[in-house]
Design a protein around this nucleic acid. Structure first.
Ligand SMILES: NC(=O)c1ccc[n+]([C@@H]2O[C@H](COP(=O)([O-])OP(=O)(O)OC[C@H]3O[C@@H](n4cnc5c(N)ncnc54)[C@H](O)[C@@H]3O)[C@@H](O)[C@H]2O)c1
Ligand SMILES: NC(=O)c1ccc[n+]([C@@H]2O[C@H](COP(=O)([O-])OP(=O)(O)OC[C@H]3O[C@@H](n4cnc5c(N)ncnc54)[C@H](O)[C@@H]3O)[C@@H](O)[C@H]2O)c1
Lengths: 236, 236
DNA sequence: CCATCTTTGTGCACGCGTTCACAAAGACAT
DNA sequence: ATGTCTTTGTGAACGCGTGCACAAAGATGG
């Protein structure tokens, strides 16, 4: 799981709890699918099932946005798509830069889901001179030296980091200095940023380790001793 | 952020809270870095700073594993690395299959962080016959028809899904039927699985949308009306 | 052996998030 | 209009996670 920043008192932004914000994209996706099938209205029960959440939670989530439902009927799909999009800020265009166009960065650049919802790749940046000018997903890779001017010229406020871990903090510092205030970090490092800058991280190996923990638990559950303590492999 | 399954009462597995489990990989990473620098001991304060968490939280997290610290001194780095590795199940080998070797799947296969910590890519699977046999990250891509035999032969319990969204549920069903009990899903879909199967998801576009929400909030904070409600663009 | 100093381990309080359960609202039929 | 039926919106209770603050533990020096 990618989590938000640490040193923040779980800001209830404009009254909308953080946990709710994190679910809005999920609802939006389900609603968009319904919209494409021209379904006019949907009940909290149906939508909750599609989004994989509890229906009471969904209703409470929506109640933070306002009273958009009709009792006895449900929610108007199109209207809700619009309201959630607006709430998430997807009615405007968000230019994004991707830094580090290696295996992962190139895959991200090729990802269609980007453009679909208000996000536009403003530039691809890499420190490798050999990459400069090469086309990736139809865009030329620009040299990292152009970072500051690109961010300024395109009013970029969101940066995606797909560099090796060792370069991530330096890239972050430059992005922040240039005016970026939201960062999505794929490198396995803890980033330090000033107040007012949001960082979210996506960390494959953390996810796998969490799965391994539960997997181990499942395996040992019905087999070995309930308390799996090893006496003392190493003295403290 | 990738989150865990929904329909589970936040299982406090063997007394270790889920939130703690999610942080253990973070501590482990910081500790491994210290270990490589041959640092013998570390205080909760230092380690917490390196992991980007509150020191009291870190101490409480460790207290669930046992009393591994020494008052007045701190924690033995090597010993803690071992204890956390064992707790997370990283002392054993976890064979993993990756399904869907497109842009993202190939990037994942090339990812070094996989092998580093107990995870071994047992096979790469794709439905495209044109890909079969091609080498990706030194491994031949196998056809999806071999899924069942590969999972069985290699005792695979963890599967990574990097197929298009439309194929994800079908792939999931086959993985689960073949014996996989943990799934890491990169496709933007809600997966339905039987009890006992864990699903974690990594969703780029959700992360971006959450960032966009806060970004919009920052932008509108000092500018427009404090309560940003638009009167009525669409009647209910 | 005692004093001092550092750092752990945890009791406690508080706030957020989740879920149940139900009254109120509205649609729809008669 | 009135009654019935469906579904929303939310009050209330509960549990989990967080962080403060401090007593206890142990190291270290004299
Ligand atoms: N590949 C994956 O599936 C995957 C999964 C999870 C995490 N990650 C992480 O994502 C990051 C990228 O992974 P990858 O496999 O694409 O690595 P990669 O080596 O293929 O690509 C890294 C790119 O970053 C560029 N780079 C290096 N320093 C830079 C700098 N200072 N400024 C700008 N660009 C710079 C390099 O030139 C290279 O093109 C790594 O931190 C990795 O741990 C990757
Ligand atoms: N590329 C990214 O950065 C990115 C980011 C976030 C999410 N995603 C998601 O990850 C998934 C993969 O993205 P991608 O860019 O690699 O797509 P892609 O089209 O490049 O690759 C998909 C691969 O899956 C294979 N496939 C299709 N159906 C299959 C099936 N039934 N069984 C096995 N293999 C099958 C295809 O042959 C193809 O090789 C998508 O769901 C995408 O939305 C991608």
């Amino acid at each position: 799981m990618a989590t938000g920043r640490s040193h923040r008192p779980a800001t209830r932004s404009r009254g909308i709890p953080e946990a709710t914000v994190a679910r809005l994209p999920l609802y939006l996706r389900a609603l968009t699918a319904l919209s494409e099938r021209s379904v006019p209205t949907v009940s909290s029960e149906e939508l909750a099932a599609a989004a994989g959440v509890n229906s009471a939670k969904l209703r409470k989530d929506f109640s933070y946005l306002g009273s958009y439902g009709t009792r006895g009927v449900g929610y108007d799909v199109e209207y809700l798509v619009y309201q959630i999009s607006r709430e998430l800020g997807l009615t405007q265009d968000w230019p994004v830069v991707i830094v580090g166009i290696g295996n992962l960065g190139a895959a991200l650049a090729n990802y269609g889901g980007f453009a679909s919802r208000g996000f536009r790749v403003a530039a691809l940046l890499d420190a490798d001179p050999a990459l400069a000018g090469r086309l990736v997903a139809g865009l030329p890779v620009r040299h990292i030296d152009e970072l500051e001017s690109i961010v300024a010229d395109n009013q970029v406020s969101i940066g995606v980091i797909a560099t090796p871990a060792g370069a991530a903090q330096e890239v972050t510092d430059r992005l922040v200095a240039a005016g970026v205030t939201s960062i999505l970090n794929f490198a396995p490092t803890v980033l330090t940023v000033p107040d007012g800058v949001d960082v979210r991280k996506v960390d494959l190996s953390i996810e796998l380790q969490i799965l391994a923990f539960h997997e181990q638990r499942k395996a040992g559950e019905d087999r070995q001793d309930p308390d799996g303590d090893v006496p003392a492999v190493m003295p403290a």
